[in-house]
Amino acid sequence: MSNAIILFSHGSTLCGAGETLKALAAQMQQRGDADIVRVGFLNFSEPLFGESFDECVRLGATRITVAPYFLVAGYFVQVELPKVLSPAQQRHPHIEVRVGKAMRDHSLLADAIISCAQRAAPPVQWRHLLDSAPQWCRASEECPLFGTPECPATTQPQA
């Protein structure tokens, strides 16, 4: 018996945008929120939801909780999630699957906003996320940096 949580998330075209979420999953697994915690992206970023589902099963999960990494249970949770969840369940019919709730108006979100405000930074630091994106470069044509001087894939000759 092994429990898994998959953080179901929208992906991003910006390279590296999913790294924070992967770190969050690793942290949740380390502190024991579940035996296995993974991220499953709907699109753009990797791994995709179905791949993460398969990996959880391969690692021995018998019960998988899908945790929507969404503030609101809108279109992506209600319409797009079933489209990727159903095939995964058909591949692994013996796995017990539950879908958790979106974050909505959780009381800790107010604390999180205040905490984010306490880490506020002056203008020189506002683009540090964009500046750090090239280290995660996956040569994606969809990345907003693709083809710009900041993109390693399009500024350095391919070996």
Partner: peptide, 10 residues
Amino acid sequence: LIADVIRDRA
């Protein structure tokens, strides 16, 4: 704190 929010909602 987002980790705690997710854990609660899961």
